[in-house]
Design a protein around this nucleic acid. Sequence first.
DNA 1: TCTAAAATCGGAACACGTTCCAGTTTGCCC
DNA 2: GGGCAAACTGGAACGTGTTCCGATTTTAGA
Lengths: 201, 201
Amino acid sequence: MSSANSLAVEDLGSAAQRDRRKRILDATIALASQGGFDAVQMRAVAEQADVALGTLYRYFPSKIHLLVSALQREFERTEVALRDKPIEGDTTAERVITVLKRTTRGMQSDPKLTEALTRAFMFADASVQAEIHQVGMLLTSMLTRVMRPEGHDEVTDEDIAIAKVIGDVWLSALVGWVTGRNSAAETGQQIEVAVKLLLRD
Amino acid sequence: MSSANSLAVEDLGSAAQRDRRKRILDATIALASQGGFDAVQMRAVAEQADVALGTLYRYFPSKIHLLVSALQREFERTEVALRDKPIEGDTTAERVITVLKRTTRGMQSDPKLTEALTRAFMFADASVQAEIHQVGMLLTSMLTRVMRPEGHDEVTDEDIAIAKVIGDVWLSALVGWVTGRNSAAETGQQIEVAVKLLLRD
DNA sequence: TCTAAAATCGGAACACGTTCCAGTTTGCCC
DNA sequence: GGGCAAACTGGAACGTGTTCCGATTTTAGA
């Protein structure tokens, strides 16, 4: 444990290590953004991040871990950016749809990157459980916050259940779009229909 | 076109070709059932099906195509088996939950096979669109039939929308289970909650 | 039955994820 | 500053999906 704070959930190590980790994730995002999942080749990432292949594997034990970690970082950024934006819309359904569509549009503006990250997410097995869980929680909390803005009613179990279902649909829609089975418009439709069904009150 | 019926959607070719195709899919299922996605190795499939590697690729242009085609065959079997079983349950929600849980249980009884097929399904890109679409239609029609048993009301657009959302949740749940993030019980729960939310009338 | 085209075979070859290793550098403690 | 353990480097090596090719077999048509 190199940090003085032994309770920290994430121990990022020395400054040099943090820097390497950042360079690796930056290279990952850059390559993914440019060429998608297939372009994120471990040798290429290592070269672009200026580390040896073995070092890359020391930081991230597989390509999937690497991409899911990148996803996590991006998602945290998105969530923070969204956190202090006012949420327009009167009804719950309207607000949720607005936020989801905005987020989806953001992802669709960088299709290759989205493809790479989504694919990795879908392919991740139990060994990536921690990172995946993190992302799932982030999404659910993002949705419940939109559903029950500050000051309003308590977040109920049903709210959480609904948020999870919406998350599932969003994921399916995203996969459909990423794999070229649905258009962007269809993806938006799919989410909108689900939200309206789930939040009709 | 080797068939006299030029309108046939599927042209399966000569008897020898049908036989090879069947042997390949049988080998795929056997290997998947025994060792999951990773065990379905193209050389192993070719050997077990007693065809050359090049021939395997002539029939199925990639491992993903191969597995999705296997999924399609299995799913058709399941759907036919389900078709003439009486659907117990009074309310729509009950019937849907019963059927989905039964199907899910069936898949969970062969975890490795389910893992292999689900992974392939999630990873499939646009080049497998046809097969994927086929499977999606099968699932949706299965669900709407359960929702609106023969003789009852017409199947509405809303029914179809609901069926699609349920399908999305089912897929997400399945992926969660397959990748070891959810237990079998949680998977059942997840589906039940979604169905109850969507079919509360 | 004969022949040309298509299909199949056996196997080499290539790409990329992953592992491994010997040598070098870095960071830390005395 | 010296010594030691951990981290890093460069690169070889291996497994599996995929491609390719020359030789052989099967199929279909005249």
